[in-house]
Amino acid sequence: MTIGIVVFPGSNCDRDVRWALEGCVGLPTRFLWHEERDLSGLDAVVIPGGFSYGDYLRCGAIARFAPVLESVRLFAEAGGAVLGICNGFQVLTEMGLLPGALTRNARLHFLCEPTPLSVNPGNCRWLKGYSEAEAIVLPIAHGEGRYQCESEQLAELEANGQVVLRYACNPNGSVGDVAGLTNTGGNVLGLMPHPERACDPLTGGLDGLRLLASLSN
């Protein structure tokens, strides 16, 4: 099993994800430069956090047109496991693989802090290791994490069980306390918190480890 990690100009959590997957979980990884198209041999793809293409225009707006994401779209549509963390979640919404959009935090501050969350794993493949309504803590680090969508869309997401991660103390004004969403197939997960920063007790707890380890079980 090998996990691909997308690298855009401006990605800055790609190496953290590699450290967590290889060092903490024990899964081999391969970096995917944004101009690559070859995903052969990969069992999952992670779109990491950072500031892809400088976040110019909107977060994720330019990244959406990267050649590697054409392959990632086909991979996801064929049922492949795709994880978007922070900027990766923003990219997934810009691509339309997940609905809605992520906007400027309600009080404008860049938020960098541990955040209590509630997990509703449903059919999400990345969250198999968590129990229903489990309370966990993961770090967030974002200026534009306020999830927005139409109220009808939110009702549909809720009804389908796609709101798999919720803020216990909504820090950024997201509708429905949305911190993470999965698609109807459960193979794509986008979340604003950083599970790769919570894979070792020395650097922020262990609550992210089961998420990154979920595919190897």
């Binding site: 225009l57 909107r58 927005q148």
Partner: peptide, 8 residues
Amino acid sequence: RLFANPVI
């Protein structure tokens, strides 16, 4: 498709 995100 590029300049604006019609969702927001």
